[in-house]
Design a protein around this nucleic acid. Structure first.
Length: 420
RNA sequence: GCGGGGGUCGCCUAGCCUGGUAGGGCGUGGGAUUGCUAAUCCCAUGUCCGCAAGGACCCGUGGGUUCGAAUCCCACUCCCCGCGCCA
């Protein structure tokens, strides 16, 4: 949600953002309904004022044992008129809320403007892709020959894009989680394992409603949705709260499985475990002072880089362009790891500054003194590790001539082995 | 799941029975007084509309009754206590 003042004072800024994102949005309708809504507030407020005044007089008359019949008649007609106006006001409010909740976030000046992913900008590269002196296998072949994943039975039991992890891959999965948690504890993050199902209003605080159908699983007959990432659950953790400024920034390491429908991804990454309906993830989530959020954003990225350097995966950092940017984010870096079997870099981390967009939806504010006006804080999120994709990268880049996989040094103590 | 108790403007609390301007304390900020500190006193401290003056709203949420609801009625929700069921 954007600051409603922008609608009145600087709608062109919003118009430019919509254009850059190539999003079709009825901005003029929103501006009109905002005006109507405020006019109705003024009118109903006046009627309420009148009602309050008469009500006071009734009370006074009654106390003095006087006759208040005429006043009460007056009240009746005022109340009647008011309830009519309130009806139209509620309708205007509903439309206003619906529209303003589907308006995407502003875009930071440093974000490249572009029509598609080709406008994304490479910021840096770390390490060269490995060179192999043998014919390499992709992770699908590796997981089959080493008996690490069972896709057929998962399809039978749950459907396409599900999987059974087996043997040492289970341990590698756990090792990534364990290593991430240790890594972030050392940086003084608060570890938090979240609910995996959350209600609609919490979900709406973190994502835009029209995206629900595409990405979110709903529990039938309940107001519950499976989280697509712990970001959703951590963001709403502090909803409707005023946070003491001296506690900021709040840095959380969220851990949870993630559930995603992946609708509209038919044909892409069809095989293997690169794109799946369920995976484990350790997520960084920051509640920050507005003036600190851009520093926090860079800090998130630097921790991500440190992490992937430790597990020795070659990667590059991309700055997403306006059309590829998520609707709630003002600026996003992706870390793309080298995937040897595909001979390309693929996204495994996404690192975003959402400014006050989520905070407004979730009513998360802060202040330094209790006599001070609370103000919205900024929220940021970044993957630390999404286990399935990182395991794909490890398997394909660390494979050996004899068809096995070397375990990255920092993970060996967790896996309890140096090869798989 | 059943029975009982509860949710009040950052925190604590009064008001609810008997409907008629939501009061007090703490904390925080500012001011007054005082040689300093302490104590005391005064003001401010929820949201929205409005350039402002001002006004409206706010007692877990949503309905209802009423001229008028924190207060009465209904539903839902969350917390606490007891019972039941249970990995």
């Amino acid at each position: 949600m954007l600051d409603p003042k922008l609608l009145r004072d600087n709608p062109d800024k919003i118009r430019k953002m919509l254009e850059a994102r190539a999003v079709d949005f009825p901005l003029d309708q929103l501006i009109k309904i905002d005006k109507e809504r405020r006019d109705l507030i003024i009118k109903t407020d006046e009627l309420r004022k009148k009602r309050n005044e008469i009500s006071l007089e009734v009370a006074r008359k009654k106390k003095a044992n006087g006759d208040a019949t005429k006043l009460i008649e007056q009240m009746q007609s005022v109340s009647e008129e008011l309830s009519k106006l309130e009806g139209t006001q509620i309708k205007a409010d509903e439309l206003y809320t619906k529209l303003s909740l589907s308006l995407p976030n502003l875009i930071h000046d440093s974000v490249p403007i572009g029509r598609d992913v080709n406008a994304n900008k490479e910021i840096k590269k770390w390490e060269k892709p490995p060179i192999f002196d043998f014919k390499i296998r992709d992770h699908i072949e590796l997981t089959q020959s080493l008996d690490l994943v069972d896709l057929e039975r998962a399809a039978k039991v749950a459907g396409a894009r599900f999987y059974y992890l087996k043997n040492k891959l289970v341990k590698l999965n756990q090792s990534l989680i364990q290593f991430s948690l240790d890594f972030l504890s050392d940086k003084n993050y608060t570890l938090v394992q979240t609910p995996y199902l959350i209600n609609r209003s919490s979900m709406e605080g973190a994502i835009i409603a029209q995206d629900f159908e595409d990405v979110i699983y709903k529990v039938e007959g309940e107001d519950l949705y499976l989280i697509g990432t712990s970001e959703h659950a951590v963001a709403s953790m502090h909803s409707d709260e005023i946070i003491d400024g001296k506690n900021l920034p709040l840095r959380y390491a969220g851990i949870s499985p993630c559930f995603r429908k992946e609708a509209g991804a038919h044909g892409r990454d069809q095989k293997g475990i690169f794109r799946v309906h369920q995976f484990d993830k350790v997520e960084q989530f920051i509640f920050s002072r507005p003036e600190e959020s851009w520093n926090e954003h860079e800090r998130l990225l630097s921790l991500v880089e440190e992490f992937y350097q430790k597990i020795e995966l070659p990667y590059r950092i991309m700055l997403l362009s306006s059309s590829d940017l998520g609707k709630v984010s003002a600026k996003t870096y992706d870390l793309e790891a080298w995937i040897a079997g595909q001979n390309s870099y693929r996204e495994i981390v996404s690192c975003s500054n959402c400014l006050d967009f989520q905070a407004r939806r979730l009513k998360i504010r802060f202040r330094d003194r209790t006599d001070e006006q609370p103000q919205y804080l900024h929220t940021l999120n970044s993957t630390l590790v999404a286990t399935t994709r990182t395991m794909v990268a490890i398997m394909e880049n660390f494979q050996t001539k004899d068809g096995h996989v070397a375990v990255p040094k920092v993970l060996q103590k967790y896996v309890g082995a140096s090869t798989i």
